[in-house]
C-alpha cells in the first residue's frame, strides 16, 4: 500500500476521534447550566451573579473541547506525520 495514503487516512481517523473530547465538555456544561437554573429558581434575586459565574465556568469547561478541536485541526492542516515520511 502507498505509505503516504495510509498515513493520511489514519490522520483523518485520528482527527475524527479527537472530537470525542467534546463529549465530556458537553456533559459538564449541561450539568453546570442545570445547577445554575436550579439556583436561580430557588433564589431569583441572585440571577446576575449566577449568570456571570455560569458564563465563566462554561468557558473553562469548554477548554477541554477546544483542545480536542486544536488536535484535530493540527492533524488536518499541519500534519506532523506526513513531514516525517519524506
Amino acid at each position: 500500500m502507498d505509505s503516504m495514503a495510509f498515513v493520511m487516512g489514519c490522520s483523518a481517523i485520528g482527527a475524527g476521534l479527537a472530537i470525542f473530547a467534546t463529549i465530556g465538555a458537553g456533559i459538564g456544561q449541561g450539568v453546570a447550566a442545570g445547577k445554575a437554573i436550579e439556583s436561580i429558581a430557588r433564589q431569583p434575586e441572585s440571577r446576575g451573579t449566577v449568570m456571570t459565574t455560569l458564563f465563566i465556568s462554561c468557558a473553562i469547561i469548554e477548554t477541554t473541547a477546544i483542545y480536542g478541536l486544536i488536535i484535530s485541526l493540527i492533524l488536518l492542516m499541519a500534519n506532523p506525520f506526513v513531514g516525517q515520511l519524506r
Binding site: 473553562i60 469548554e62 477548554t63 477546544i66 483542545y67 478541536l69 486544536i70
Partner: peptide
C-alpha cells in the same frame, strides 16, 4: 495556553 487556545479555537471554529 488555555487562555489563548480558548479564544483561538472558538473563532477559528467559526471561520471553518
Amino acid at each position: 495556553i488555555s487562555l489563548s487556545f480558548r479564544l483561538f479555537g472558538n473563532i477559528l471554529g467559526g471561520v471553518i
